[in-house]
Structures are given as structure tokens and as C-alpha cells.
Amino acid sequence: MVDNIAATAHIALTEDERQRLTAEFDPIIDALVVTADEQLPVTVNPLPVNNKLRADVVANELSNEQALSAAPESQDGQFMVPAILDGE
């Protein structure tokens, strides 16, 4: 279970972490049971604010240099990563 979720979340675990989390995982989830009135709507934003829309005007763009300023690896103004094969 923990291994599958860690894979989905793209997180490498050390063997110690894996064992610890395997032991802790089920008790955590079990402790997180809540019982709600099903008729209630869900709340996403705590305040009832709607329609915060902005004008279609360019602002706050980064220069290419700023964009890449913290890139671990880059080439030709682009971020570089190991090869990605077609079809995901």
C-alpha cells in the first residue's frame, strides 16, 4: 500500500522510512474517520467569495534568464531533463 502510494506521489523512501511509515500508515488513516451529514455541501474556500477575475493584460513575466535562474540543468534557454519517451 505505502509503496504504491509513494510511487504515485513520486517519493523515494529509505528503508527506515518505509518501515516506519508502513507501521504508522493504517493507524493514521483509521484515526481520520469523520462522520458528516451527507446533505451538507462541501466547503472548499472558507469564505464565500466568488468570481475573482482579472483583466486580460500581460504582467509579471519573467525573463528567460530569470525563468532558468534556478534550473538544475538547462540548455538553449530550456529546462533539460533525461529523455522522455513518446506515449508517456
Binding site: 502510494i5 509513494a6 513520486h10 517519493i11 523515494a12 529509505t14 493514521i28 488513516i29 533525461p82 529523455a83
Partner: peptide, 27 residues
């Protein structure tokens, strides 16, 4: 692969409690 890079970078960069919270949240 690029997916390995992502997994390893997060594995090395995050502490245990962060990892636990992410994995619980993902679940």
C-alpha cells in the same frame, strides 16, 4: 528516467514528516 529524477529528488529533498503527510494526502 525523468520520472526517476522526480522521485529521487523528492526522496532526498523532503524530510520524513513531509513525506508522510504527502503520502497520506495522496491516499
Amino acid at each position: 528516467t525523468v520520472q526517476d529524477v522526480i522521485t529521487a529528488s523528492r526522496g532526498a529533498g523532503f524530510g520524513y514528516e513531509t513525506k508522510r503527510r504527502i503520502i497520506v494526502g495522496t491516499h
